[in-house]
């Protein structure tokens, strides 16, 4: 399998994005805004459709669409505080509608390839982009992880402490949008949302520290990608879809692990009481 260059590149890009996606997406999951990650993933598809239909760079348009969608979600969240999820619904509907209509003006099958991605057809430019964006995400989270954690904990307390909440939120969202846009071409815009939320949800079952949760989420995401691509290669399945199924299977395993751990703890405490 690894004797083919396209497979080696597929694994490399998969592992890189497997690190970048849960890191960049963890904040929305911890803030219980996973659905906005889903909406952004769909908006990247609309961006690609606009790019293809208008003869513009699909990747560039995908990034622009993600950033604009993020701004729309935030604007609606601030304007209609009681209906904060409205922005997600608006962006999702708009993205699916735009992508669906513009599909008629693109080459047949081209836009569909963004739904589940085409990780086995990654070119050198996409590889370099994946290396670049992953390096940026890892450096950003390494340097600012305490500030980001403070914002997740409570943004007003962080602001009073001197954290530049607005600026860091903007940079985070920009990085998140770029990661989603690059991932759409390789592992697919529908699949990327599974790697935003599921590895973090799975790692939450371990009930550990913030740093431990982030590390475990990244490991589970990378493991999902490696197992997913391997199974897809031997079973001739779609790699992006297989990665999503593996990620969900790992989540189920983590649920079982937690149930088992809780049962053992309960039994021990009962014994101590007796």
């Amino acid at each position: 399998m690894l004797s083919y260059e396209f497979m080696r590149i597929a694994f490399l890009v998969g592992i890189l994005l497997g690190i970048a996606i849960p890191l960049a997406g963890s904040t929305v999951v911890f803030k219980r805004l996973s659905s906005s990650g889903d909406a952004l993933a769909h908006s990247s598809l609309a961006g690609v459709a606009i790019g293809l239909a208008a003869g513009l760079n699909p990747l560039g348009m995908s990034i622009v669409a993600c950033v604009i969608s993020f701004l729309i979600i935030e604007l609606i969240r601030k304007k209609f505080a009681k209906y904060s999820e409205l922005g997600v619904a608006v962006v999702l509907s708009l993205s699916v509608g735009l992508a669906g209509i513009l599909m008629n003006y693109t080459k047949e099958g081209y836009l569909e390839s963004y739904l589940f991605g085409s990780i086995l057809l990654v070119d050198k430019l996409q590889l370099y982009l994946a290396i670049g964006v992953t390096a940026l995400v890892v450096i950003f989270y390494f340097v600012f992880h305490k500030q980001i954690f403070a914002i997740i904990y409570n943004d007003s307390e962080a602001k009073v402490g001197g954290v530049k909440v607005g600026l860091l939120n903007f940079v985070q969202s920009l990085l998140f949008s770029i990661v989603i846009a690059i991932s759409a071409k390789t592992i697919g815009s529908l699949v990327v949302s599974s790697l935003i939320a599921i590895p973090v949800a799975a790692s939450l079952q371990a009930k550990t520290s913030y740093r431990g949760t982030l590390l475990l989420a990244t490991i589970l995401s990378v493991v999902s990608v490696i197992i997913g691509i391997t199974i897809a290669y031997y079973a001739s399945w779609t790699p992006g879809a297989t990665i999503a199924i593996v990620a969900v299977s790992l989540l189920v395993l983590m649920f079982l692990y937690r149930a088992l751990r809780d049962a053992i703890a309960k039994r021990r405490s009962l014994k101590t009481t007796k």
């Binding site: 305490k146 402490g161 520290s209 913030y210």
Partner: peptide, 18 residues
């Protein structure tokens, strides 16, 4: 929410600069 007590308390030392 995933965090230990010392992680939460250390947030009180977080300012603008890393």
């Amino acid at each position: 929410f995933p965090a230990t007590v010392e992680e939460i308390v250390s947030l009180g030392l977080v300012g603008a600069k890393p």
